[in-house]
Design a binder for these strands. Structure first.
Length: 570
DNA sequence: GCCGTTTTCGGCCCGACTGTTTTCAGTCG
């Protein structure tokens, strides 16, 4: 069973307990356990099989550890089944309606017998809800609106998509003269792969005027609340945006608070408590005296911490690392000197070799590897040995014809179902750079998949493993594979892990980057560009690498041409 | 249910907004 499935079970227990008015701290501890499990880079099932003591993991104590073992043995938890008998299934859906929580959901169920969204809608339309204590006509209206929101809501948005909306919103905010400063915070600032909503902090002399202009943004679909501290809107594209106003002396504290993550904040706040201070979005306080708040740097300094880059703020050891002066010097976009994965017209790309090379040169890249598909990918017109030979010649010709940029003749060769590669040894050996990827038979069971990938890595013909988990965010789960074994094989064979920058791939994901980093592996950040424009996606891969604690020295396409040639020659 | 430099009990992050009340509970982030 996958970590995410196990985490879902504990989240569900948390939901059901909450509905039953169980102690909120107990509810929280189940959610904390779920988060810990979801964030693990290693598979929990493997850890159990190895006999690891799960209670050593944060937020996992005796009870949860016991339940994990129960899940491994039976696929489920008795406690969950009991709870599911006590609470109707639909109540969780009802609880998810914006504006409704466990209390009201239970009240609606107990007093009106509402068990599903349909029944809830019906009860609102028949004006039955207003008869309940604490609810009125406005409540009915909001619930109906909430049901619509829930139905149209498709989950989190890709970071890349959100970035487009942020840029457009920024253009609106830039025009508002009353706004002296604004920052986009939240998971967007932490560069998470998906974004749930946007948190925008605003500093303005005249808040009322500024707010009025902010809310005049043409892309706003609905204004959900408006206040001088906080206003919430939903854009026409469904993205929720919170605007929050802060004064200069609080702006840094607010930025820290709303950048999160929640887990990171909680650790900071506990540290404040330990010193008898109080930390909130307005600053760090000793009684009523403001100790810090203007800037994040000042705030962290008060805690004797170095400023922590937002990408690391996930409570994955960054606070301890900051304290001990061993935060990594994270890789920057400007460190990147080239791109080692792209396609051309020869297969499923849109640009010619020349066009791709010229675009890379104009971006300032010092090298580019052309890596078209192999024949297995027939829909993409993949190359066979003969066409590859000609293609490689064309690439080398382009290399000769172009100054300032080195062009490597490469391939993205398919890893076949049995672990063999899709092109013969001789053809591969003549290339400068070989990326091996899985595209077909992604549903193999874990053991077979692991053997398959390890065999490819062990072939001695491969420089890099492309998009290792083969996931498509929001539509395709990662393949089932024992990454410990894959990493070990990569280490043994000097195979470099790709961080694929496609907006819906971002593969290797951050937590695995961190694990592979600890195991001493190397990476390249590449775009998998299928057009000239695709080369710009590299910054997304850099974001993943930063979230994975990588610095310039572990990423080979930050090296000079000469250094890189040495690595490829091996 | 988890956790521990006051360790087996007694804590557990904090504030804004809404809708309903008339001082507050529930929800959200």
């Amino acid at each position: 069973m996958e970590n995410s499935e196990i985490a879902d079970i504990f989240d569900r227990i948390g939901d059901l307990l909450e509905l039953q008015k169980e102690n909120t701290f107990k509810v929280r501890s189940y959610r904390n356990a779920a988060r810990t499990i979801r964030d693990l880079s290693r598979r929990l099932e493997d850890m159990v099989n190895e006999g690891r003591d799960l209670t050593k993991l944060p937020n996992i104590g005796k009870s949860v550890a016991g339940k994990i073992e129960e899940i491994m043995e039976t696929g489920t938890v008795k406690r969950l089944q009991e709870l599911e008998k006590e609470v109707p299934d639909g109540l969780i859906r009802i609880m998810n309606v914006p504006g409704l929580g466990p209390r009201k959901a239970m009240q609606l169920y107990k007093e009106l017998g509402v068990e599903s969204l349909e029944e809830l809608k019906d009860a609102c339309e028949k004006q039955k809800v207003r008869s309940l204590e604490g609810m009125g006509p406005k409540t009915e209206e909001n619930i109906l609106k909430g049901i619509e929101t829930l139905r149209s809501y498709t989950g989190r948005m890709l970071y890349h998509d959100a970035k487009g909306f942020v840029n457009s919103l920024k253009r609106h905010l830039e025009k508002i003269s009353e706004i002296s400063r604004y920052e986009v915070s939240g998971s967007f600032r932490r560069r998470k792969e998906t974004v749930g909503d946007l948190d925008i902090l605003v500093q303005a002399k005249d808040r009322d005027k500024a707010l009025e202009k902010v809310l005049s943004y043409s892309e706003i679909g609905d204004i959900q609340s408006r206040g001088s501290e906080k206003s919430t809107v939903v854009l026409k594209n469904g993205l929720q945006v919170d605007f929050r106003f802060f004064d200069p002396q609080s702006f840094g504290a607010a930025l820290c608070y709303f950048t999160g993550s929640k887990a990171h904040n909680i650790v900071l706040r506990k540290r404040a408590q330990d010193k008898d201070w109080k930390l909130n979005e307005y600053g760090l306080w000793k009684d009523d005296t403001l100790l810090a708040g203007k800037s994040e740097e000042e705030l962290y300094k008060k805690f004797s911490l170095n400023w922590i880059p937002p990408e690391l703020r996930e409570d994955r050891g960054e606070i301890e690392a900051s304290e001990e002066d061993r935060l990594p010097e994270l890789i920057e976009l400007s460190d990147i000197r080239g791109d080692l994965h792209c396609h051309t017209k020869a297969t499923d790309g849109a640009g010619s070799i020349k066009e791709m090379v010229e675009a890379a040169r104009q971006k300032g890249h010092r090298y580019l590897a052309i890596t078209d598909h192999s024949k297995m990918v027939s829909v993409a017109n993949g190359l066979d040995e003969e066409r590859l030979k000609k293609h490689a010649d064309d690439i080398r010709q382009a290399d000769n014809d172009t100054k300032d940029i080195r062009v490597f003749a490469g391939i993205e060769v398919d890893i076949l179902k049995d672990g063999r590669l899709d092109l013969d040894e001789k053809a591969l050996a003549e290339l400068d750079w070989v990326v091996a990827s899985v595209h077909f038979y992604q549903n193999l069971e874990e053991k077979k998949m692991t053997e398959r990938i390890v065999a490819a890595v062990n072939s001695g013909l491969v420089h890099s493993l492309g998009h290792p988990l083969c996931r498509i965010i929001g539509s395709r789960d990662p393949i089932k594979v024992d990454m410990d074994k894959v990493f070990a094989a990569c280490k043994e064979n000097n195979v470099i892990l790709e961080i694929n920058s496609q907006p819906d791939r971002l593969d290797l994901p951050d937590t695995y980057c961190r694990q592979a980093l600890d195991e001493g592996l190397l990476f390249h950040i590449s775009t998998d560009a299928h057009s000239v424009a695709g080369l710009d996606l590299i910054e997304l891969g850099v974001g993943v690498a930063r979230r994975g604690w990588l610095s310039q020295k572990e990423v080979i396409n930050t090296r000079t041409v000469k250094q890189l040639e040495k690595i490829l020659a091996r």
